[in-house]
Amino acid sequence: MSDLAQTVSDTGTITWRNITRLRRQPDSIVFGIIQSVMFVLLFAYVFGGAINVPGGGDYTQFLMGGIFVQTVAFTCATTCIAMADDLSRGVFDRFRSLPMSRSAVLAGRTFADLAFATVTTAAMALTGLLVGWRTDAPVLSVLAGFALLALFAYAFLWIGAVIGLSVRSVEVAQTAGLIWLFPLTFLSNAFVPLETMPEWLQPIAAWNPISAVVAAVRELFGNVPPGYVAPDYWPLQHPVLASVLWCLVILAVFVPMGVARYRRAAAR
């Protein structure tokens, strides 16, 4: 078998293994769905009345892009914990003693978690529709929006994988996988407009990859109010391009780092 065919086959096997594990733990899927639905409802009804959307839009329309991105970003905590768990159980020793592709273990992990992120995204989209989220963008544009979310989720899952391989125990992974996501997602345009932040904070939030992806998703879903003028930062002026570039940069950094960590971490 050629190297590429072997990598594809091994990735398929490991993805199957991880999805089977997920299916046998339905409570983790249920809680993932409950959590995402809860976020939509909390933000829509608690913040909905308090936040003025620039351009005079409705907060629910504004919110959905942000909550989609936040939730798929949070999926990487799942990856982080799963990696640390496999590492602690000696599963990687077995994998590494087999004549299989080195990158397949990480690729199979991230693909399975991407499938999980897809399920929660669907649950959120349905909840959004129930609380009044609407899209009038062309179908292709909406599909592109979901595709971008998937790309972004996939890139972030690799960050989770690297963290999971770097920590010393599952307990640490539970915190380390999650804690950095709060400042990252809140220091962005996900829940509040950039314009309402202090001047000095605005450039930081604008160059946060989360902001670019949120802006891009809003644009592709047709949730940008008609009169809205994007802040004068390059990533927010060209959110789709900026998002794709951010995702590629993240993958270019974290995929090789993840594979290297896997080799080393498993050899501890």
Binding site: M1, Q6, S9, D10, T13, W16, R17, T20, R21, R24, Q25, R89, G90, V91, D93, R94, F95, S97, L98, P99, M100
Partner: peptide
């Protein structure tokens, strides 16, 4: 050319016995 069995069993607790062996067989191609 080798098989390894560790001092703590590295079996996947959520897969069945058959699935565990199937997975390893596939990873040996």
């Amino acid at each position: 050319s080798i098989g390894l069995s560790g001092q703590y069993a590295a079996v996947d607790e959520y897969l069945t016995g058959r699935e565990n062996l199937l997975m390893i067989g596939r990873l040996y191609h």
